[in-house]
């Protein structure tokens, strides 16, 4: 299946996770990885399944590379109806704003009529698991759901 993976990053951890997803799933799917900083919401291909990976930064804000995308989307009437997406967060449960970055992004996409597939899972920097250990099974499940949806359509 064709899947676009879009990351919002501040320190590079989300970008690294996307590269890991590519090495793990790139043989089975047609993956394209993009920095959200270089994506215009109006140009999203609504027929392609999108996976977003985003950290939080500062006081629960979006990471720097996701901000221009979010600002463009928020101030526009871009209709994302038809777009299916899943979203994975990176966070630090030491802070009460744990996962707020990915939450903001998810809410914004849904508000513009995109359809979220499956739960938003957040990797916790305080935990013992590595981000990829949490993200790989999550990704496989979301892709299976997206495939089932497109088969049914």
């Amino acid at each position: 299946m064709k899947i676009n993976i879009l990351y919002g990053t501040e320190t590079g951890n989300s970008e690294m996770l996307c590269e890991d997803l590519e090495s793990e799933f790139g043989d089975d799917h047609e993956l394209e990885i993009m920095n959200l900083a270089e994506v215009d919401p109006a140009d999203l291909d609504l027929s392609v399944f999108h996976v977003f990976v985003s950290s939080s930064y500062g006081d629960g804000e979006l990471p720097a590379s996701a901000k221009p995308f979010a600002e463009k989307l928020e101030g526009s009437d871009t209709d994302l109806a038809g777009l299916s997406f899943a979203i994975f967060g990176l966070g630090d449960s030491d802070y009460e704003t744990f996962g707020h970055g990915s939450e903001q992004l998810a809410d914004m996409l849904v508000k513009h009529n995109a359809k979220q597939v499956g739960p938003r899972v957040i990797h916790d920097a305080q935990g013992d698991d590595l981000a990829e250990d949490v993200a790989f099974p999550w990704f496989a499940e979301r892709v299976a759901e997206a495939e089932a949806m497109s088969d049914a359509a």
Partner: peptide
């Protein structure tokens, strides 16, 4: 006590 910030070293280890 900011181990979350130190986690960036995983990128560097790579």
């Amino acid at each position: 006590d900011h181990q979350g910030t130190k986690a960036v070293s995983r990128q560097f280890a790579r």
